[in-house]
Amino acid sequence: MTLMLDVARVAAATNILLLLVLVGIWGRNYREIRSKHTLGSAVFALLLLAENALALFYYLDPPQMSAPAVRAMMYLQILEFAAIALLVYVTWD
C-alpha cells in the first residue's frame, strides 16, 4: 500500500506544478484579452489546484484508509495527471 501512496503523492505533486503553469498562462491571457473563457479556465485550474493540494495533504499524513480506497484514489490522480498534462501540452505557447 505504501507504493500506491507514493505514486498518488507524486501524481498529486506533479498535478500541482502543472496546474500552477496553467494558472500562470491562463491568468496572463486573461489580463491581455479579458475573455470570459480564459477567466473560467483559470478559475477551473485554481479549483483543481485546491483539490490536489488537499489530496496531497492527506497523502502525506494518511488516515487509516483501506487498500481499495487508496488504489482508487491513485488511479484517479494518475488519470487527472494525464488530463492536466494534455491541457498543458495544448496550451503551451
Rank of each mutant, 00 (worst) to 15 (best):
R31H: 14
A72F: 12
L46Y: 04
L3H: 15
D93L: 09
V90G: 01
Y58C: 10
H37C: 08
M74H: 09
L56W: 10
L19C: 05
G24T: 06
P68K: 14
W92R: 03
L18T: 00
A83T: 00
F81Y: 06
A67T: 14
A42S: 09
L5Q: 09
G40F: 00
V21K: 06
Y30L: 08
R34I: 13
A55Q: 05
Y59T: 01
I25L: 09
Y30Q: 03
L79I: 02
D93H: 02
E32T: 10
M4K: 12
T2Y: 03
S41M: 08
L48Q: 15
N15E: 06
V10M: 12
A11H: 09
Y59V: 02
V23F: 02
L87I: 04
H37I: 10
N29H: 09
G24I: 07
N52M: 15
Y58P: 06
L60I: 05
V70Y: 04
I78N: 04
L20H: 15
K36W: 05
A11N: 07
A45K: 04
R71L: 14
M74D: 02
L60H: 10
I25V: 00
P63M: 08
Y89H: 13
R31M: 07
M4L: 14
V88A: 04
L56K: 02
Y75M: 08
L39F: 15
Y75V: 07
I78H: 06
S35T: 02
L22I: 13
L47N: 14
N15T: 11
A82M: 12
Y30K: 02
V88P: 03
I78K: 04
W92I: 01
R9V: 02
R71F: 06
R71M: 10
V10E: 07
E32L: 01
L3G: 12
S41G: 10
M73D: 05
A12Q: 00
Q64Y: 10
R71A: 14
P62G: 07
A82K: 14
